[in-house]
Design a protein around this nucleic acid. Structure first.
Lengths: 156, 156
DNA sequence: TTTAGGGTTGATATATTATAACATACCTTC
DNA sequence: GAAGGTATGTTATAATATATCAACCCTAAA
């Protein structure tokens, strides 16, 4: 059991099911979940935290998979494009999506103190209504919230 | 008149009043709006678009104000910290705040095609209620919306 | 008046994040 | 078996941001 998303859960099962889900999705949509892409997703699922591209690259390099930046950026691009991973712009970091497959507008809660990131979601409807009344067409949204997670609040 | 925030407005008046407002605020709060800081804010107000730090630095350099990165990053840090400028994380770019002084949670609408950025705001109340029910303390929020602005929709 | 402190600036160097560009390999399919 | 698409390997470089340390300037306390 790990401490994730400010709550407890069975991590091994979570990794396995998320990987299986990604494989199913890729098969269904004729996307190539190649070994490098699969391993990057697996790393992000296992670590279950927002990681920098070069952190991931270091792991890949230690496993002999690849040591040049394009290796990891290409894999991340694939994973982000297809909804398996989110980029946390505010941290320049990447995080495995905790509910892939669902059409969601991610909301990240980033703890300034410990760096933990929890993914939530919010109704996009209100947002969309107000934005599009101005004629703006929403394609992607990222809401980044920074603050203190429960554990760090207690520690402070 | 310029085309800003997907609408028209009197830009010269807007720049002047925003600068005056910044000066008033700084005087009241004993913040030092030094020449470099003031000029960076003025540049962002005049351009009225999201600019990269190095774009701003190039202008400062051409004016003999400073040519090294810390010059612009220090000024931006001051301006962002004190609410005169927002950072658009998704673009690694900076934008003068269109309603400084108000306690607001910025919402940026970023046009993928032309790069225009309009700042809006949204009720933080709902957001705060749902986040804090999990024990998370919100300190800062950034919602970044990418899509197509009205002009680019027509062009497409 | 001097000295200590805080805030700002100058300047050099470097860290961190990300992409361009081009060659190669590997499939599929026609 | 040649063409075209997708993915990978590799080198180099671009773009963004920060660390560090010395100098300066103002203020205020000793």
């Amino acid at each position: 059991m790990h401490d994730i998303g400010f709550a407890q859960h069975d991590h091994a099962a979570c990794v396995a099911s998320a990987l299986a889900s990604a494989e199913t999705t890729c098969a269904a949509e004729k996307l190539q979940l190649t070994p490098t892409r699969r391993r990057v997703l697996e790393i992000l699922l296992e670590e279950h935290r927002a990681m920098g591209a070069y952190d991931i690259l270091a792991i890949l390099a230690s496993e002999g998979i690849g040591s040049q930046p394009p290796v990891v950026y290409r894999a991340l691009d694939f994973l982000v494009t297809n909804g398996f991973v989110h980029k946390i712009e505010k941290l320049n970091a990447y995080l495995a999506c905790t509910h892939p497959g669902e059409d969601h507008s991610p909301v990240f809660m980033i703890c300034r103190a410990c760096g933990a990131v929890a993914e939530s979601s919010m109704p996009l409807a209100d947002l969309r209504r107000s934005a599009e009344s101005t004629g703006f067409l929403i394609e992607t949204t990222v809401l980044e919230i920074e603050g203190l997670c429960p554990a760090c609040r207690e520690a402070a």
